[in-house]
Design a binder for these strands. Structure first.
Lengths: 377, 377
DNA sequence: TTGTAAGCGTTATCAC
DNA sequence: GTGATAACGCTTACAA
């Protein structure tokens, strides 16, 4: 790993000027084949790799897209990597988990989006620079984001992963595409990529009414500050109104996108004998909590109560009955985000781009009952 | 998004020289508080963000670690992101899958390693530059890797994700840490981070013999070119030898880390009435295939035949009976890799670092039988 | 403590 | 078709 060779070394080796070396790399057709070969040989011999920093400086672009991932509570994962000294590996009985294991939903979600971004980045001939926001202090995050901003041509930002002020700052400097964030008043003409939460919930509830003649609902909502949550509730309302049901007659219970609260809400509903025909939950975690409460009380799903979720997290198919839910195209979200960002980078003055990706309602036993006999698609 | 301000703009605004601006950023303590504040104000007012490229050029380091992910067969994921025009979301009945769904194992594996790398990169104050190797041609991959090499201080390379020649080339230019690759003759003094495949398999097989008195085995192996596969088989042999069983008496069946082949091998074993007491598989996919074949034939697991896997992929706990397997600390693999790489970058001449992470044998019903009564840990 | 100026390794605009 | 040479934006001796 001697000192890395530069254009000058290559030029000398090939007996040409550095300009020619650069041309061979960028516009090979403008250089005579003979010289071109000479340069390429030199490059090979020296193992020359152009400096990205120098290229970036000269061209004013890096070919890199930044992506900032929110940090979870993973900071405590701080064990050491002590080489194993024992000659035996650890044995551990691993009995089946009781109750529903607490899922770690966001993580899978981001993994999918990330993967989609990687794929599209590849298509665009760009790299992805990723950072995870483990430092919980706002300064830390701002510093990190600012640092990234200096290294990339544009940035994909996941909904609510960075403070508003930081986001505003960022948007002054480089193109930014928001993912899964509903347009907000304070974000005029931002490029964004999202998913049709409203339509998904609406279609789901329409189905409950049309196919299952549900006439009484309860809605277990997510946190107030979640745009997703609002959009879903809008869809819920629309479906009800459309069928002449006054949405006001369907009670809302405020949750936190967590299964625990939904479990308690449901248990309370059971105790007070206020169970509706269908329990519509703003996301899967909560639906799982509800199912657990119903199962504990021996209430039949879907015969007594229908339960639905949103997101299609992994656990929805391991619970009994399997949960009817709405799947978001996470991978496409990532793909679309990077695609839009690339367009924006190439054409900074084009009008704002907003993409809405369609969702899919997955009908499963928690509303359909036994499906085993149906033909598999 | 006017032209991005530079040190010069900041200097002018704060009425100092560009050197002072730089100092405020890098060594604030060397500048008088008054001037420091002036500069910081200017930075704030202008929304100044240092150019990573310029910094990289000047300091000869980027603060970025590269990571190259292998590309699967995901290239065909090429639909468009057509905004949904329909007002209704798509409804789809989603009956339970028959048979064991085909898992996509590597992907989860890499996601874990990636996540670990992100976490450690954060600890090290570095960013991660990732690229996925979708272009199947060797030139494409080499070009991509070479491009990355120009942008990073070092690189984490997953086992067999890039061609040997490219790897050799890469190692001449920048520090490289190999992940999950057994040391090979052609890779002298490489830094590497791996997992004790051998010890894991050995402990597992020892357990089968000690606790379950297994005296006849068959081994369903992975591909010949996989170091993991070899290490696991070594562990298998060692355990047998240790107990005075001649490994030669346990037939080996060559698989491909795929469930399909293992299924057929097992079915064949059944037909020929050659089933051993225990079927030890080199990874989970194959074990799942074996279980499927046994279930189809109505053979009891573990009463008639014990089956074991390796990796602990998601599906191991949804199959019946749940699969006894060996879990690798994927997240720690990533963490360790970045940690080692950071050390290497800071001290290029230190002796090679090799870390072996311990694995955990997870005893589940496919060898233990009913565990429901046991106390949960 | 602060300023001046010389790189860092490219690209790109001119001449030739 | 090729070669000088001036940016590009920052860091860092070296001077002041």
């Amino acid at each position: 790993m001697a000192k890395r060779p530069t254009v000058y070394d290559v030029a000398k080796q090939a007996k040409v000027s550095i300009a020619t070396v650069s041309r061979v790399l960028r516009t090979p057709e403008t250089v005579r084949p003979a010289t071109r070969d000479a340069v390429q040989d030199a490059i090979r011999i020296l193992g020359y790799v152009p400096s990205g920093s120098a290229q970036g400086l000269a061209t004013q672009k890096t070919g890199v897209i930044g992506m900032f991932l929110p940090g979870f509570d993973a900071v405590e994962q701080l064990r050491d990597f002590t080489p194993s000294t024992k000659d035996e590996a650890l044995l551990r009985p691993d009995p089946p988990a009781e109750g529903s294991a607490l899922p770690q939903p966001d993580r899978l979600y981001f993994d999918e989006v990330l993967r989609g971004s990687e794929i599209e980045a590849w298509h665009q001939g760009r790299s992805l620079l990723i950072n995870i926001g483990l430092g919980h202090s706002e300064e830390d995050i701002t510093a990190l984001v600012s640092d990234m901003a200096g290294k990339v041509d544009g940035m994909v930002v996941l909904a609510r992963s960075i403070p508003d002020a930081t986001l505003a700052f960022l948007r002054r400097r480089i193109p930014v595409v928001m993912v899964a964030n509903a347009p907000q008043d304070d974000l005029p003409n931002a490029d964004l990529v999202r998913v049709s939460n409203r339509k998904g919930m609406k279609a789901l509830v329409n189905h409950l009414i049309d196919a299952h003649h549900v006439d009484s609902f309860a809605y277990i909502a997510g946190p107030d500050d979640s745009p997703d949550n609002h959009k879903r509730y809008e869809g819920f309302q629309e479906a009800l109104s459309f069928h002449g049901i006054n949405p006001a007659t369907a009670p809302i219970y405020r949750g936190q996108f967590r299964s625990h609260l939904a479990h308690d809400i449901t248990a309370d509903l059971i105790k007070r004998r206020r169970l509706p025909r269908a329990l519509v939950c703003a996301n899967d975690q909560m639906a799982l909590g509800a199912i657990q409460a119903l199962n504990e009380a021996g209430i039949a799903i879907p015969d007594d109560v229908i339960v639905t979720g949103f997101d299609d997290i992994k656990e929805t198919t391991s619970v009994v009955p399997r949960l009817t839910t709405v799947r978001q195209p996470m991978l496409d979200l990532g793909r679309a985000a990077v695609s839009v960002l690339a367009q924006r980078i190439e054409n900074p003055t084009a009008p704002p781009i907003a993409i809405e990706l369609p969702v899919t309602v997955l009908l499963r036993e928690s509303c359909e009952g036994d499906m085993a006999s149906e033909t598999r698609e």
